[in-house]
């Protein structure tokens, strides 16, 4: 069964199973319109004021099972459009096979989850927001630890932390030129931590993304924001040091941001870091990683040669 046939069959099943599905059709179309038009180019979790208001109104209008059905129907509709329109258009631009495979794999997996879903699935949370963005291909899935979405480099964040940082940030921006406006921001997929959060999963992700970037000359490189790229992690959590060492060895640069992360931050779930935090010896710090295009492609070339 092709992906389009699978999507069609799930849709038919949902309409057969739930009497209210047909009534939801106009709401699904509005939802699809918001995601495809308003969310395109925005970060997957930053909704516009219009969309936030509309979603709040929808959330109060329906009960939880109906909202879950609405979310599933919206995902099905978005994936159908993506397969028929977006993916076909992007394939014409000679996307690498790995990028197309990653979309097919993710969509197949999402279809499976829609068919077999338990109660915990399709709540209005960060995972669903990612599913929504990926279904619309506003965000692209990979086969490994992260997803990626086209975003400009956040200049304000990288200039926010001291004079020394300003100089090196300016150097990065000059080297990127106009391409700093066309980067891919990477986001960790929490459902893939095991096993892809380990070193191989990150290396394979960067390699896959380098293929994509190689096929798109206008993309300046990749960036991401995370607490685990903080330089002090080498000292406090040496087992996680590969997370920074790997891209750093390939020419990525790092900038700590000024933002304060709270005492309930995930970095402090670890007992050792919690103890250090309470003793005033560690503060979780969000750090921006920037891996410029040329450096990433050089690193990927070296890795491929090494593995041959």
């Amino acid at each position: 069964m092709t992906l389009v046939e699978l999507l069609e069959s799930i849709k038919t099943d949902l309409y057969g199973q739930y009497a209210q599905a047909a009534d939801l059709d106009p709401v699904v179309q509005d939802y699809v319109g918001f995601v495809r038009q308003v969310m395109k180019g925005r970060s997957y979790n930053v909704y516009s004021a219009d969309m936030t208001l509309w979603l709040e109104e929808v959330e109060t209008r329906y009960d939880i099972p109906t909202l879950k059905l609405l979310r599933k129907l919206t995902l099905i509709e978005l994936m159908t459009i993506s397969v028929e329109v977006v993916l076909q258009h992007d394939m014409d631009k000679h996307l690498p096979k790995s990028a197309i495979e990653a979309v097919n794999n993710w969509f197949q997996g999402l279809c499976r989850r829609i068919q077999e879903t338990g109660d915990h699935e399709f709540d209005n949370n960060d995972l669903f927001h990612k599913d929504l963005a990926i279904a619309a291909l506003n965000m692209w899935p990979s086969n490994f630890i992260c997803h990626y979405e086209p975003r400009p480099l956040p200049r304000r964040s990288i200039f926010s932390c001291g004079i020394r940082q300003i100089v090196s940030a300016a150097q990065v921006l000059i080297s990127l030129g106009n391409r700093s406006q066309s980067m891919y921001e990477v986001h960790v997929e929490d459902r893939r931590l095991t096993p892809h959060f380990l070193q191989d999963g990150w290396r394979d992700f960067y390699l896959e993304l380098s293929e994509r970037i190689e096929s798109e000359p206008g993309i300046g490189g990749i960036f991401g924001k995370a607490w685990f790229w903080d330089a002090s992690m080498k000292e406090h959590s040496p087992r996680m040091s590969y997370l920074r060492d790997l891209p750093e060895a390939g020419g990525a640069v790092f900038f700590p941001t000024r933002g304060v992360l709270g005492s309930d931050h995930i970095a402090l779930d670890n007992p050792r870091r919690r103890r250090l935090f309470e003793a005033g010896q560690y503060t979780p710090t969000e750090t921006i990683m920037i891996w410029p295009r040329a450096k990433l492609l050089d690193w990927a070339y070296g890795e491929r040669v090494k593995n041959q």
């Binding site: 095991t194 096993p195 959060f197 380990l198 087992r239 779930d269 670890n270």
Partner: peptide
Amino acid sequence: LESWDSMAQIQIICAIE
């Protein structure tokens, strides 16, 4: 066990698999 953190958990699960 303090050393059995979330990273160790991922490594342990992968090794078990």
